[in-house]
C-alpha cells in the first residue's frame, strides 16, 4: 500500500478550483431555466389545460423515467443527426439543456404538489374579488407554493451541481473533466478523484448550511 501523495493533491487544489466557476455557471443557468420551465409545467398540470396537460404529463414521465446520462447523450450526440443546425452545439450548451429538461420534470412535480397544498378557498376568495387566473397564481398561490417547495428545490439544486459532472462525457472540461485529465497524465487517479470529490462535498456542504438557515427562516415566517 502506498501513501496518498498529499503534495500532489495540494497542487491540484488551485487547478480544480479554477473550474468551479464553470461548474457553478452550468448549475445556476440550468437551475434558473429549470425553475421557470417547472413552474410553467406545474401550472399546466394544475389548471388541467386541455391537450397541453397530456403533453406535459408525457414530458415529465420521460425525463423522470430515463437516466440523465442517456438524455445528455441524446441531446449531444443523437439529436444533431436529425436536426443538422445542432451539429455545432457545444458541450456546455447541451449539458445545460439536458440538466434543465431533466430537473424541470422533477421540480414540476414538487411545485405542483405545493400549489395543490394552497387551500382551495384562497383561490376562490381571489376569484371572488375579480382577480384573473394569472393574478391569483402570481400574487396568492405561487408565493405560498414557493415557500412549501423551497427546501425540496434546493435539494434538486444540489443534485444539479453534482449532475454537472456528467458534462465531462460531452467533452466539457469542468471540475470532473479537469480531474480526469490530470489523473490521465499523472496516473494518480485516487488523488485526483479524491480532490474533486472533496470539492463537490465542500460546495454541497456550504449550500446545506444555507438551506438549513432558509428552512429556519421559513419555519419562523409560517409560524409568525
Amino acid at each position: 500500500m502506498r501513501p496518498l501523495d498529499i503534495a500532489y493533491m495540494w497542487d491540484l487544489v488551485p487547478v480544480i478550483a479554477g473550474y468551479i466557476p464553470l461548474t457553478l455557471f452550468m448549475a445556476l443557468v440550468s437551475m434558473v431555466a429549470a425553475l421557470v420551465l417547472a413552474a410553467l409545467l406545474a401550472i399546466v398540470r394544475v389548471l388541467k389545460i386541455p391537450v397541453l396537460d397530456r403533453v406535459v404529463a408525457v414530458f415529465i414521465s420521460f425525463f423522470r423515467g430515463t437516466p440523465l446520462l442517456v438524455q445528455l447523450f441524446l441531446f449531444y450526440y443523437g439529436l444533431p443527426q436529425m436536426l443538422t443546425f445542432l451539429t455545432n452545439i457545444d458541450g456546455v450548451t447541451a449539458a445545460i439543456f439536458g440538466l434543465t429538461m431533466h430537473f424541470s420534470a422533477y421540480m414540476a412535480e414538487s411545485i405542483r404538489g405545493a400549489i395543490l397544498g394552497v387551500d382551495r378557498s384562497q383561490w376562490e376568495a381571489a376569484q371572488s374579488i375579480g382577480m384573473t387566473q394569472g393574478q391569483l397564481l402570481r400574487r396568492i398561490v405561487l408565493p405560498q407554493a414557493a415557500r412549501t417547495a423551497a427546501p425540496t428545490l434546493v435539494n434538486y439544486f444540489i443534485d444539479m451541481i453534482k449532475g454537472t459532472s456528467l458534462a465531462f462525457t460531452l467533452g466539457v472540461t469542468e471540475m470532473m473533466g479537469a480531474a480526469q485529465k490530470e489523473a490521465a497524465g499523472s496516473f494518480l487517479y485516487l488523488e485526483a478523484f479524491l480532490v474533486v470529490a472533496l470539492f463537490y462535498w465542500a460546495i454541497v456542504e456550504i449550500l446545506s448550511v444555507g438551506q438549513r438557515r432558509m428552512e429556519r427562516h421559513l419555519g419562523k415566517a409560517v409560524a409568525r
Binding site: 378557498s121 384562497q122 376568495a125 381571489a126 371572488s128 374579488i129 405560498q144
Partner: peptide, 18 residues
C-alpha cells in the same frame, strides 16, 4: 359580476401570505 358582488366565506379564506 364579481366586481359587483362581495363574497364573505364561511371559513374566512384570507390570503395567508398577506
Amino acid at each position: 359580476l364579481r366586481r359587483r358582488t362581495g363574497f364573505v366565506f364561511q371559513n374566512y379564506a384570507l390570503f395567508a401570505n398577506k
